[in-house]
Design a binder for these strands. Structure first.
Lengths: 336, 336
DNA sequence: TTGTATGCGTTATCAC
DNA sequence: GTGATAACGCATACAA
């Protein structure tokens, strides 16, 4: 392996100058810089990151901590973050919390042990606050939270526009002529779901409709609970459902089919998250898309910005987008 | 940050001993080791990975290079690898090639610059051989290939049992009474697809049926080409199709529906890869599952084994598994 | 603009 | 079984 000393010797200068030339210091003659760069290229020099990290006390890497990497949402966030960080010379170290606080702590310790420059994290479900994060994160690392965030932790927070998304999804149903719209709200322990519920309610109110707790279902957002909620919604006279998740929306479709109602003519459905399957099923499922890749990019950008002295990034909103598919599109039959 | 010197001072011994104690050297008294461990715990010591890496000339990390991290297959492989590596104290650095040789080379250089202990890679589509990998990988790193592999490269190769999988998928259709089974074979530039085609053919032969090139379709395995192939297959008298991909199987379903045929009574379909949507659609799609998570685990294990002097790992096969769903299950009507 | 000197924290080699 | 010493490759404070 070739080092800066090798380059220095070949050129009859000292390692310090080579180091300066290579790291773009202004205190070096242009001709020297060029000579150094040429020689580095020629010898196939590559900086030893470990040595550099040791000397500087931190590594050109950021850790990303997510519950599970093999979930589409998170792997897309990582992909987005990687695309930005890569451009700026940062490696990405990934860690999974498996939705366990214990593993989250372990990951933070490992990242601290590596002196990473930043930590991008979306916390595990059981967390009730960010104390364990504060206690275990490298105090010199920049903390960026995304999607699942605690507002009492310092640093940037990148979140979806949940309120606005749910609002638009609900309004879309109303505008398509549906008149009694249920809601699958999810557990309200997460801020995101609280906001979605509020968006749903406000849309109803703004469009002159009433909020009826009878047809709001608080439960996990998996297919089975969606199915149960769907049955009740139909029983209670709904002709549409806005669901805070796609899997629960899928369950609603099961229930609607079972009841022999036609989608979208007799029953409309909008889900949330725009999971891949929503576009592949028949009928395809309308959904409020989150943009995880973009969220990852913004998280990475927030990290980079935070590195600059004096810079401060607060909460960053990532727009959601209504993807209209078959399950809610009866406007073509002119009902409105 | 507390260092081994801090521990040494507190204990009135030297850093060398602390280092030995912490790294589990046998040449240290038990009582000393325990004292060191207690003190390390108490002071909240964590090894500086950069210093350790510099001294040892390599880092406790492996790089994983995949075309895209946000593809279910690859993110699951990464998840599996991470689960094993994490247990052994290795970090995972992820890199995406975006299916470009250029980015692959860039990733390998970055990993070499970091002196990673191993590289787990699934190569980009345009690669025709492994030369650019050999030229750019850290010669001291263990190379492990998975899924998309070049047999002329050294080191372990982890692959799916493509031949056997396709064989079983095809046999399953035959056993369910389908009598003219088409095949969507995919591009044969990849070894995996060649093997799947062979499995399909051999299954037909073994079950006393003929191979008819008229109903074998060589093309990309996306939904649209699946649809086109499906139309031709129906035209040419098929009552079933085995597809080397799930998306193309989805296209076949489109074609079958358009032709007004009932699934699975009048037409059977088996796909490959067991993408998430296959279990969520109606009718659900039977598919030959790959086990990416397991593949990742085995790749990581192969890396760990290869570290041991003298050890040699060659090709490792990961079983595929037939997931029988609605699109091929007419055995209950007793046609066979 | 360049050179000199030093140290980052760890581990390996040698001596005792 | 432990200690002393050196070195990994780089980046910086200081001197020139």
């Amino acid at each position: 392996m070739v080092t800066i000393s090798d380059i220095a010797k070949k050129l009859g200068i000292t390692p310090s100058t080579v180091s300066r030339a290579l790291s773009g210091s202004p205190r070096v003659k242009n001709s020297t810089r060029e000579a150094v760069e040429r020689m580095a290229e020629q010898l196939g020099y590559e900086r030893n990151e470990a040595a550099s990290s040791l000397r500087r006390g931190k590594i050109n890497a950021v850790g990303i901590v997510v519950p599970r990497i093999n979930r589409a949402f998170f792997s897309n966030v990582i992909g987005g973050a990687e695309s930005v960080l890569d451009e700026h010379g940062y490696s990405v170290i990934i860690c999974q919390s498996h939705e366990k606080i214990e593993d989250e702590v372990k990951a933070l310790k490992m990242l601290r042990s590596n002196r990473v420059a930043g930590v991008l994290i979306s916390h595990a479900i059981p967390s009730e606050n960010g104390n364990h994060i504060l206690e275990n994160i490298d105090p010199n690392a920049v903390l960026v939270q995304f999607d699942r965030v605690f507002s009492d932790l310092p640093g940037p927070r990148i979140v979806s526009e949940n309120y606005k998304g749910a609002y638009e999804g609900t309004r879309h149903l109303i505008e398509n002529g549906y008149r009694r719209i249920g809601n699958i709200a999810g557990y309200l322990s997460s801020e995101a779901y609280v906001q979605r519920l509020q968006g749903y309610k406000q849309a109803l109110l703004d469009m002159g409709m009433e909020v009826d707790e009878e047809i709001i279902f608080y439960d996990s957002i998996v297919r089975e609970t969606g199915y149960q909620a769907g049955k009740l919604a139909i029983e209670r006279g709904c002709d549409a459902v806005y669901s805070a998740g796609d899997y629960s929306a899928l369950g609603v479709i099961d229930a609607v089919r079972e009841a022999g109602l036609r989608i979208p003519d007799e029953f409309g459905i909008v889900g949330t998250a725009n999971e891949q399957f929503t576009g592949l099923m028949t009928p395809s499922l309308s959904s409020m898309a989150q943009h995880p890749y973009e969220m990852g990019r913004r998280a990475a950008q927030a990290f980079l910005t935070s590195l600059k002295p004096g810079a401060h990034v607060g909460e960053v909103s990532v727009p959601m987008e209504l993807i209209i598919r078959e399950s809610s599109s009866r406007n073509h039959i002119g009902i409105l």
